[in-house]
């Protein structure tokens, strides 16, 4: 209990600092960006490049989650919110002037251990695994072992994406909950029988992304929408962006920004739209 006091004090100070920085975001070359932890690493890359191009400006990128980011924009404590999901109707109701703009497309990869013989899953099998109807790997062509399902926490944009696209609004059943991309990747890399989901930009050699309905989560498959589990990443502003926020968004959507996002593993929004005019299921 005694430990609560310093923590609370620090929290209050940080909140005050964030609030002040947020208020000042439209002047003095400071820009406050907050939200989704899936978008955060990409926004940091953009921020570094943007600061180099515009000396004297500072872009502060904070995590916290899509909901927190959208709320921060609505309350005016951040100039730009990062979201890995579309803005919800309930959020529009609270903050009617929110303006989302898609900055890139990201696949959500279903990852398993490299030692797992399963390479392909159908969308229906994936749904059944996460809703608890399929519980053994031998039901999907693997060895006789219980499937260890790993979920993200409630409120995560990635979890929301899987729930919308794969589960079609159904509920997750069973499994453990880990709170970050890195934690899920580590857990899957250690556990032969695990399955989890992370941004396809974050897949590395320690885990294996399975094909969904025959399509691997590659750049082209996400761009031409044949890999179905994908969502748009958004920057959200309150009303039309102005000043530094507008500059930063223009930079992001321009050739330079899109090239950075592409190098970072995301699919450029222009490539995706060229490939198909159908909008992603998250919208």
């Amino acid at each position: 209990m005694k430990r609560l006091f310093p923590i609370l004090l620090v929290a209050v100070l940080v909140a005050a600092a964030v609030f002040e920085a947020g208020c000042a975001s439209n002047s003095a070359g400071k820009l406050q960006v907050a939200g989704s932890t899936s978008v955060q690493p990409h926004a940091e890359v953009l921020a570094r490049a943007f600061q180099q191009n515009n000396s004297g400006t500072r872009v502060y990128v904070q995590g916290g989650g899509s909901s927190a980011g959208i709320q921060a924009v609505g309350e005016g404590t951040a100039a730009i919110g990062m979201s890995s999901r579309a803005v919800k109707a309930s959020e529009i109701a609270t903050y009617p002037t929110l303006k989302p703009v898609a900055i890139a497309v990201d696949g959500i990869a279903m990852i398993v251990n490299p030692k797992n013989p399963v390479n392909n899953l159908t969308m229906n099998q994936t749904r059944d695994i996460f809703t608890g109807n399929i519980t053994n790997w031998n039901q999907v062509g693997g060895s006789d072992a219980t499937i260890n399902v790993i979920n993200r926490e409630q409120g995560s944009g990635t979890r929301d994406g899987v729930q919308t696209i794969v589960l079609k609004g159904g509920n997750f059943a069973g499994g453990i909950v880990l709170s970050s991309t890195g934690a899920i990747r580590t857990a899957v890399s250690q556990d032969v029988n695990a399955i989890g989901y992370i941004s396809s930009a974050e897949v590395d050699s320690s885990v294996k992304a399975v094909n969904i309905d025959g399509a691997a989560p590659t750049y082209d498959n996400i761009a031409n929408r044949s890999y179905k589990i994908q969502r748009d990443f958004f920057f959200v502003t309150k009303g039309d962006p102005s000043g530094l926020a507008s500059q930063f968004i223009n930079f992001t959507l321009g050739a330079g920004g899109q090239a950075l996002l592409k190098a970072d593993g995301l699919v450029s929004i222009s490539d995706a739209q060229n490939a198909s005019m159908t909008t992603s299921a998250t919208k």
Binding site: G64, G65, S90, G155, V177
Partner: peptide
């Protein structure tokens, strides 16, 4: 786990 996302 959830405080970062929690609203309302």
């Amino acid at each position: 786990l959830e405080m970062g996302y929690a609203a309302g």
